[in-house]
Computed example of a mutant assay.
Amino acid sequence: MNRYETLKLFDYSIYISSLDRFDYTEQTQKCIINTLNQYSYIIAEKDEYFKKVLVESDLLLPDGIGIVGATKILKGRKIKKIAGADLHKHLLEQLNAVAGSCFYLGSSQETLDGIKKRLAIEYPAIRVGVYSPPFKKQFNDDDNDRMINDINDFNPDVLFVGMTAPKQEKWVYAHKHRLNVKVICSIGAVFDFYSETVRRPGKFWINMGLEWFIRLVREPIHLWKRYILYGPVFIYHVYKEKLLIVLNKNSN
Rank of each mutant, 00 (worst) to 15 (best):
I73P: 04
L74Y: 06
W205Y: 13
H237A: 13
F191C: 02
Y131M: 13
I43S: 02
L247E: 14
Y227L: 03
L159F: 08
L92C: 15
D142S: 14
N140F: 11
N149A: 12
D141T: 08
R218W: 07
V198S: 10
Y239H: 09
V161I: 13
F139S: 02
E48F: 08
R226D: 01
H222M: 11
Y239F: 15
P62D: 04
K167V: 06
K75H: 13
K78D: 14
Y4D: 00
S17C: 06
E26Y: 11
S195R: 04
W224P: 06
G209V: 01
N155G: 09
G69H: 09
I245T: 14
I115H: 00
E45Y: 01
D86V: 06
E45V: 01
K46R: 15
I32S: 02
I42F: 01
K116H: 01
A83W: 06
H175K: 12
G114Y: 04
T164F: 05
L74K: 09
L74R: 08
Y49E: 10
D23F: 14
H175S: 09
G202Y: 03
M208D: 00
L74V: 12
K8P: 05
T197H: 12
S101C: 10
D23G: 03
N152A: 12
N140V: 00
P201K: 07
R21S: 15
R3I: 04
I214G: 03
Y4H: 13
S13I: 05
I214R: 12
D143I: 09
K176L: 10
N152F: 10
L210C: 11
G69I: 00
Y123K: 03
K176W: 10
N96H: 09
S13G: 06
D47W: 07
I148E: 04
Y41R: 02
K80V: 06
F213N: 03
K167D: 07
K117T: 04
I73T: 10
T111V: 15
K240C: 07
K80G: 08
K249A: 15
C102T: 05
L119F: 05
Y12G: 05
Q38S: 15
R200T: 10
K137G: 01
E93D: 14
K136F: 11
V128H: 00
T28A: 08
F213V: 10
N155K: 14
K203I: 13
N149P: 03
R178M: 11
G162K: 03
L179D: 00
D11M: 06
L59K: 08
D150G: 09
K240S: 13
F103A: 03
I228E: 02
S107T: 12
I42R: 02
F135T: 01
S132D: 09
D150C: 11
C102H: 01
L87C: 13
D23R: 14
K117Y: 06
I82R: 00
Y131A: 11
Y104T: 01
K117W: 04
G162L: 00
A125Q: 14
N37P: 09
I33K: 00
V161N: 05
N2F: 10
S101L: 04
Y131T: 04
K225F: 05
F191H: 05
D11C: 12
A85Y: 08
T28D: 12
T28L: 13
F22M: 09
G106L: 03
G162W: 02
G209N: 07
L243Q: 15
R127E: 07
M147A: 09
